[in-house]
Amino acid sequence: MTVFAALYTDEDMSALVATLLRSRGLDVTTVPEQGVLGKTDSEQLEFATSVGRCIVTHNRVDFERLHLQYMEEDKQHSGIIVVPQKNAYEVAQRIGILVSTLTADEIRNQLLYA
Rank of each mutant, 00 (worst) to 15 (best):
L37Q: 11
V51K: 08
S23I: 01
S100M: 12
F47R: 00
L111Y: 07
Q34F: 05
V56C: 02
T30S: 00
D105T: 02
Y8S: 02
S23N: 11
L111I: 08
L45V: 07
Q34L: 12
S14F: 07
T19E: 14
P32F: 04
M71G: 02
H77W: 02
A88M: 01
V36S: 04
Q93E: 15
D41N: 13
L21N: 09
C54N: 11
R53Q: 09
R22S: 00
T9Q: 09
A114F: 03
D105A: 06
H77T: 09
I80Y: 03
T101L: 14
F63M: 06
L16F: 06
G79E: 00
T57A: 06
I80W: 04
L37I: 15
G96N: 10
D41M: 03
R60E: 13
L68W: 02
L21W: 15
E106P: 06
I80F: 04
D105F: 00
A18Q: 02
Q34D: 01
T101H: 15
Q110C: 10
H77A: 05
A5L: 12
L98P: 04
A104Q: 01
T2R: 14
M13V: 15
F47Y: 15
V91H: 00
N87C: 09
A5E: 12
T19D: 14
V56D: 03
K86A: 08
T19F: 14
N109W: 00
Y70M: 05
V3A: 14
A92I: 12
D12W: 11
R65N: 03
V51E: 04
Y113D: 12
L20H: 08
M71T: 06
T40K: 05
T49G: 06
V56I: 13
M13T: 09
G38I: 11
T57G: 04
Q76W: 06
Y89R: 11
T19W: 09
R53M: 00
K86L: 15
V82Q: 05
L98D: 11
D41I: 06
I97C: 13
A15T: 10
S23K: 15
T9D: 06
H58D: 03
D27Q: 14
I81K: 01
S42C: 01
L66N: 06
V28H: 08
K75A: 13
T103A: 13
S23E: 12
G25T: 06
N59R: 10
V31P: 03
Q76H: 09
V82W: 08
V91S: 04
L112H: 10
T57Y: 13
I107R: 01
Y8R: 14
V99M: 03
G96K: 02
Q76G: 02
T30Q: 01
S50E: 07
E72H: 01
L112Q: 11
Q85Y: 12
L26F: 14
I55G: 07
T49M: 04
L68Y: 01
I97M: 14
D41K: 04
S100T: 03
L66F: 03
Q44V: 00
L111V: 05
